[in-house]
Amino acid sequence: MYAKILVPVDLSNADKAERMVRKAEALLDQGGQIVLMNVVEDLPNYLAIDVPMDIIENAVRDAKSQLAVLKEKSARISSTEIRSGAPAREILAVAEETGADLIIIASHTPDFTNYFIGATADRVVRHAKCSVLVDR
């Protein structure tokens, strides 16, 4: 069905990330590829003063090791991406750069401010140039 699927994962929930990779594998064409990614969010300026300088570097290092573990579990994962910044913007950028024809994104349990799907998933759905599957 799809030749290249982008799977942005929240590494704080490994089970959900693995489930999303399995879902992507089921939707891939023969010879298709999965691009696995994680976004390390920038700290707001008012917090940056009070946290250690290397917190972002440590988060990127942890993300690399966790993505490597996920990549070992699937031969269909062709590459991994780690970005720093606003999650929706970075997901959309990687989708365009890699030529993804599907993004599988997780939605968290909504609160009052983003009732239907999460804020990041909502932005990705509205602005993506390819199909988006929201995993609940």
Rank of each mutant, 00 (worst) to 15 (best):
A121S: 15
L47Y: 04
E57W: 08
M53Q: 14
H108K: 11
G99A: 01
M53Y: 12
I82T: 07
G31F: 02
A100L: 02
D62I: 11
A68W: 00
L102G: 03
A17C: 13
A100F: 04
M37A: 10
G99F: 01
V125F: 02
A128M: 04
I91R: 10
L43W: 02
A26L: 13
G99Y: 00
I5H: 03
S74Y: 00
D122P: 05
G99E: 04
D122T: 12
Q66F: 03
R83I: 09
A17Y: 05
D50R: 08
Y46V: 14
N45A: 14
G99C: 05
L43N: 00
L70H: 03
R19T: 03
C130H: 03
L28A: 05
A106P: 15
A24M: 09
F112S: 05
I82M: 08
A59Y: 07
D50G: 14
A121Y: 08
K129D: 13
K73L: 11
A59R: 11
A3V: 05
N58M: 10
R89W: 10
D62F: 09
I105M: 00
E41K: 12
R136P: 15
K129N: 15
G31H: 02
I105A: 02
R83M: 14
L43M: 08
A75E: 15
R123S: 14
Y46L: 10
D135T: 01
N13Y: 07
R89G: 15
N58V: 06
A128F: 01
A121Q: 07
S78I: 03
S84Q: 15
P87W: 04
E72M: 11
V51T: 10
S78V: 07
L11Q: 10
L43E: 03
E57S: 15
V39R: 02
D62N: 14
V134A: 02
Q66M: 11
A48G: 15
K23F: 12
L36V: 13
E41A: 13
V132K: 06
D29I: 06
D122M: 11
V39F: 00
T113G: 03
I77W: 03
G99K: 02
D10G: 09
E90Q: 12
I55T: 14
Q66E: 14
M20N: 06
S79W: 00
A75H: 04
G31R: 02
D101G: 01
I104N: 00
K129T: 11
V94F: 06
D111Y: 02
V21W: 01
K129P: 05
V60I: 15
V132Y: 07
D42C: 07
K73H: 11
Q66P: 04
S84A: 09
Q30A: 13
G118K: 00
V134I: 11
Y46W: 12
E97N: 09
R123A: 15
V69H: 06
T120P: 02
L27V: 08
